[in-house]
């Protein structure tokens, strides 16, 4: 097992009396896209800025690319790429000039042409940064983070404020980093973004990690009961269901919901009951909690229904 790219143990950070990161543990392995998901003010940016070397910490062990970011030097900085949450490059310089400037900072920079192509800005090479659209400016930021051929890329809320089409475009650029063999540490408050991009997700709420896993297993999603629901035909109440179903039935928003760990068995019982009474249950649906349901429950402090 190789050493993880990022290893965090018991990280704490307080501003005065207010603790914003309350003892978190993290591990990010080489080549994965890791999403740090949480609502605004949960401690995402503070955590990522500690990993980037911008901020000090009050407690905990932090190792990024084998070094402590708080005492790292130029050599370490040449191995990371950073996209800040908000950063507007000098509008007077062209895209090409900014790429060349940033390339000059690094000992083993990638070619400017290839990097422009990787983020889809070849056409904008001689355009001044102030004339770029919001989505293009973000791709400029991503390109500048890649120009030094980093092993690890930090992206702090890379698509906040984007319209859906710009967001999808940015996602494609970020997924391409996987093919380039980069390790990516992404913070986001969009569950959809984590689902689209991430191999693994950690959810942070009020400075604590409340769940960690793949998008399939997060919050016990893979083990959560299925939800079977239908609109009851006229004159049918939940209590008229067969006893074993009536126990699990709940009337919500005009629909009967059945939570089941054994959906095939429950459906069989339900279908037999309906066919016996010549009921069609036209809008019958079987669903699993979406990642969004799981995320909302986690971030509201609720537990998944048993």
């Amino acid at each position: 097992m190789t050493e993880p790219i990022i290893r965090v143990k018991g990280l704490r950070k307080a501003y005065g009396e207010r603790e914003v990161v309350g003892g978190i543990d993290l591990e990010v392995r080489a080549g994965e896209i890791f999403a740090f998901l949480g609502p605004n003010g949960a401690g995402k940016t503070t955590s990522v800025e500690i990993l980037e070397g911008y901020r000090s910490r009050n407690a905990g062990d932090v190792s990024v690319l084998g070094e402590d970011p708080a005492s790292s030097g130029r050599e370490w900085r040449s191995r990371i790429g950073v996209v800040l949450q908000s950063c507007t490059m000098p509008g007077e310089l062209t895209v090409g000039e900014l790429f060349e400037l940033y390339a000059s900072y690094y000992p083993h920079a990638n070619s400017v042409d290839e990097t422009l192509e990787a983020v889809g800005l070849q056409e904008q090479r001689s355009v001044r940064a102030q004339r770029l659209s919001g989505g293009q400016q973000r791709r400029l930021d991503v390109g500048l983070a890649l120009i030094g051929d980093p092993e690890l890329v930090f992206l702090d809320e890379p698509t906040t404020g984007f319209d859906p089409s710009a967001r999808h475009h940015a996602w494609e650029v970020i997924s391409n980093l996987r093919e380039l063999g980069k390790t990516v540490f992404l913070t986001t408050h969009y569950m959809e973004e984590a689902q689209f991009l991430a191999d693994r997700v950690a959810v942070i709420v009020a400075g604590q990690i409340v769940s960690e896993g793949t998008t399939q297993t997060l919050g016990g999603r893979d083990r959560a009961p299925s939800d079977i629901s239908f609109t009851p035909p006229a004159g049918v109440a939940p209590s008229q269901l067969p006893p074993e179903l009536a126990l699990a039935a709940e009337l919500r928003d005009g629909r009967i919901h059945l939570q089941s760990q054994h959906p095939a068995r429950t459906l069989h019982a339900l279908a037999s009951w309906a066919v016996d009474r010549d009921l069609d249950l036209e809008d019958l649906t079987v669903g699993r909690p979406s990642l969004e349901d799981v995320y909302l429950q986690l971030t509201e402090g609720g537990e998944l229904r048993p």
Binding site: R74, R77, L84, C87
Partner: peptide, 16 residues
């Protein structure tokens, strides 16, 4: 440049 994040961004590169 400080308020637009340009100086902060430069600090995450190897430029002294």
């Amino acid at each position: 440049q400080r308020e637009s994040g340009v100086l902060k961004r430069a600090r995450a590169t190897p430029v002294p």
